[in-house]
Simulated scan of single mutants.
Amino acid sequence: MTVSTAPRAAGHGRLLTGVAWALLLLGLWLWGKDIAAGPGGLSAPTTGDVAAVGRPLGVPLPPARPPLAPAEPERLEIPSLGITAPVVPRGLDGAGAIDPPPYGTADTVGWYRDGTKPGSDGAALLVGHVDTETEPAVFYGLSSARPGERVEVTRADGSVAEFTIDDVQVFARHEFDPRKAYGQRREGRAELRLITCGGTFDQEAGAYTANVVVSAYLTGAGDAPRRG
């Protein structure tokens, strides 16, 4: 399916994206509570309530690397998609949902700071907007990611955690399962979830019909290049 690109009234894009985030992030919050005591069409694989790209034949995936010591993320890069974005920590808002990055920073990725740090044991959650009122945002092309592609997270300790994508799924909003979407797939492994809105735009509900979830696992580590 493809997200509708029909003209919208001024201000409508902000409303629809906000509604979609509210649904997604409420799911993250509920999942977290349960475990511990998100120009052109957006192309997304959609077949039934949950659709997965899976691993194409002939695409070998490397072995997992042992988790790294915890360190906060600073920058995200997905070379195959041309994504390079700063990462900022985000907490919960007054309603108990995770705050997405502000609309004025559509090129920024948010990290759920009360969860796992990217590269350490567990599943770290990174969220980004798919669009703004007038243009695509940082995760607009996320649904085109494919297994075997690389994701790099530069961390505050000067290291770069290198992840390999192993799964791309589109979860329908009305049957969303946060545990399945965000839970750690294999015990003792460092994993990553990249999350945005997807599916089609539901005019009546004022929200997207699904969420794109890209899963990756740690396969390497290195030092961040010096800048400046």
Rank of each mutant, 00 (worst) to 15 (best):
R90T: 12
R185T: 07
G199T: 03
R55G: 01
R65Y: 02
H174K: 10
D93S: 05
G41D: 13
R155H: 01
T209D: 01
P62R: 13
T46K: 12
V53R: 15
I165L: 03
E74L: 15
G198L: 03
P70L: 04
T108C: 08
G222M: 07
T108H: 07
L68H: 09
A207G: 06
P56M: 12
G148S: 09
E72R: 15
L194E: 00
E187K: 14
P147C: 09
W29P: 00
A161P: 10
L28P: 00
P86E: 14
G158Y: 06
G128K: 09
G220T: 06
A6Y: 04
G188R: 11
V170C: 02
R186S: 11
D202W: 09
H129F: 09
V151T: 07
T46E: 12
G96T: 05
N211E: 11
G110N: 00
E135I: 08
G41H: 12
G122D: 06
Y140H: 15
G18M: 02
V88M: 13
G199I: 02
T2Y: 03
A221C: 05
G38Q: 08
L76R: 10
T47I: 12
V88E: 15
F139D: 01
A207L: 07
P39G: 03
D177N: 09
V50M: 12
P66N: 02
L192G: 01
G199M: 01
W21K: 09
G148H: 06
F176N: 00
G96A: 05
P89H: 00
S43Q: 11
F201W: 07
L15R: 13
T116F: 02
A44S: 14
E133P: 05
T116C: 11
G27A: 15
L15Q: 11
G128P: 04
V170I: 14
T200L: 07
T134S: 14
R150Q: 14
I83Q: 01
A106G: 01
G122C: 08
G40H: 07
G91F: 09
R8L: 15
G91N: 04
G158K: 07
S120K: 02
V59C: 00
R146C: 06
H129G: 07
A64K: 02
D114S: 14
T105A: 15
T116Y: 02
D99C: 09
P100A: 06
T164P: 04
G104I: 05
P178I: 12
R113N: 10
A145S: 15
A6I: 04
I98A: 07
V87S: 00
